[in-house]
């Protein structure tokens, strides 16, 4: 019986891997089709005071338009299909970390026209500039996650992690 449970656990773990691979591929395909992988297009979208290119508003509208009803339906379930529970963010705090981090990210996004998803997707065909950006991005992440520079304020974050996980308050 334990052998059967072990085999089932292994099959579930393999299914989760495939699911993540498929979701990533669909995500990357969507980014490629949408024009979001093109930094000039992204910067054109951010250029609201100049020659504004509204294309990427349609990407966001499509993505949220699909995910909003999708999430509502999925979160009616007690648990996901291949895992024990939903792994959802529990922090509700709008603090300096959130705003400061988002502001730094926005500046970098505006400067290069790349955010993390499109930058990783562009690695397969955009050559050295994309690689350079992604390596710097990984360094920036490690700077936060592995040095004292990122531990400023993490005690507050870990304190808020104690909140109950599971189904979110609003669905």
């Amino acid at each position: 019986m334990t052998g059967g449970a072990g085999a089932r656990t292994g099959a579930l773990a393999a299914a989760r891997l495939l699911a993540a691979l498929a979701a990533g591929a669909l995500f990357g395909f969507g980014l490629s089709l949408s024009g979001m992988v093109d930094p000039t297009r992204v910067r054109g979208f951010l250029d609201v005071t100049g020659d504004w290119d509204p294309t990427l508003a349609f990407v966001l509208a499509g993505a949220v338009g699909a995910a909003l009803p999708g999430y509502r339906l999925v979160l009616r379930r007690r648990r996901p299909l291949l895992a024990e529970r939903f792994d959802l963010p529990t922090s509700r705090r709008i603090d300096g970390r959130l705003i400061g981090g988002s502001a730094l990210f926005g500046v970098g996004w505006g400067l290069a026209g790349f955010c993390p998803g499109p930058a990783v997707t562009a690695l397969s065909f955009a050559g050295m500039p994309a690689l350079l950006f992604v390596l710097a991005m990984l360094a920036g992440m490690m700077l936060h996650d592995r040095t004292a520079l990122g531990r400023l304020g993490t005690s507050r974050e870990s304190a808020s992690r104690g909140e109950a996980t599971g189904r979110p308050g609003r669905t």
Partner: peptide, 23 residues
């Protein structure tokens, strides 16, 4: 294409939650 690509992204995000429970 922007709208269609966006829909795919939204679908991918929904699938990861439905299948693996992850954001």
């Amino acid at each position: 294409p922007a709208l269609a690509g966006g829909l795919m992204i939204g679908l991918a995000v929904t699938l990861l939650l439905l299948l693996n429970g992850r954001i």
